[in-house]
Computed example of a mutant assay.
Amino acid sequence: MGRPRGFDEADVVQSAAKLFATRTYDGTSVDDLVSHLGVHRNSLYKTFGSKRGLYLAALKWSLEHEVAGLVERVTAAGGHTEKAHGVLADAVTGTALDLVLLAAVERAPVDAEVAQLVGEAFTALDSAVGDADRAADNRNATASPVAATALLIGLRTRARSGTTDEGIIRAGVGLAQRLGQP
């Protein structure tokens, strides 16, 4: 019988998600993972099969916990400008979208499974924005929720780059108003 596992797999996946969200897939070596996660290289390979296996588990964790939570909050905020503004401000300044953003630009073009997961996340965000528009009985609800999702993602990308100018704030307020006013 083998030795019992000396680490909590869920904790390792969550920590790996945070690491990949700050350093990217290509910017994170197996040595970085071993050092940061406190897991032996052999245990990492035995549990996840490869760096990619851990990355996929981390991306799925991020989608199930961070992005899904954002989707729920956007849907629930529909029809309430203050709530929508708070949710979107958190999405723009917080880290919930970071791993999916990096996955979209770095891994999705070269990995079909990552592309599918990213596409599903963006579709869920589009649906939440559409639901929020309908809940607000928004006269502009016929406008594409994809455009609103793209604005949200663009705002997060700009904020992540250190840009926090007045334009980001105005755009975020406009998006919140779209989701919260008839």
Rank of each mutant, 00 (worst) to 15 (best):
G2A: 09
R3P: 14
R5P: 12
R5D: 12
R5V: 11
F7E: 09
D8K: 03
E9Q: 13
D11K: 06
V13D: 09
Q14S: 11
A16P: 05
K18V: 09
K18W: 14
K18L: 10
T22S: 11
R23T: 00
R23D: 12
V30G: 07
L33I: 03
H36W: 10
R41I: 02
L44A: 09
Y45K: 04
Y45F: 15
Y45M: 07
K46C: 04
K46L: 06
T47Q: 08
G49P: 15
S50N: 09
S50T: 01
K51D: 14
R52A: 15
L54E: 11
L56S: 13
L56R: 08
A58G: 07
L59V: 01
L63S: 02
E64I: 00
E66I: 01
G69H: 07
G69Q: 06
E72T: 01
E72K: 06
R73K: 12
R73C: 03
V74F: 04
A76E: 15
A77V: 01
G79I: 03
G79H: 13
G79A: 10
E82V: 03
E82D: 15
K83A: 13
G86Y: 11
V87I: 05
D90G: 14
V92D: 11
V92E: 13
T93V: 00
G94E: 04
T95C: 00
T95M: 00
L97M: 07
L97P: 07
D98M: 04
D98W: 09
D98L: 04
L99A: 08
A104W: 03
V105G: 08
V105D: 10
R107G: 09
A108L: 06
A108S: 15
P109N: 06
P109L: 01
V110P: 15
D111G: 13
D111N: 14
V114H: 10
V114W: 06
V114A: 13
A115I: 00
V118Y: 07
V118K: 03
E120I: 01
F122K: 08
T123C: 08
A124C: 03
L125D: 12
V129R: 02
G130V: 01
G130W: 06
D131N: 10
D131S: 06
A135E: 14
A136S: 13
D137I: 02
N138V: 02
R139C: 05
A143W: 09
A143C: 04
P145G: 04
A147N: 14
L151Q: 09
L151D: 11
L152P: 14
I153N: 05
I153S: 00
G154E: 09
T157Y: 12
T157R: 04
A159V: 03
A159T: 07
A159K: 08
R160P: 06
E166I: 01
E166Y: 07
E166P: 09
G167W: 10
I168E: 14
A171F: 08
V173Q: 14
G174T: 04
L179D: 08
G180D: 12
Q181G: 05
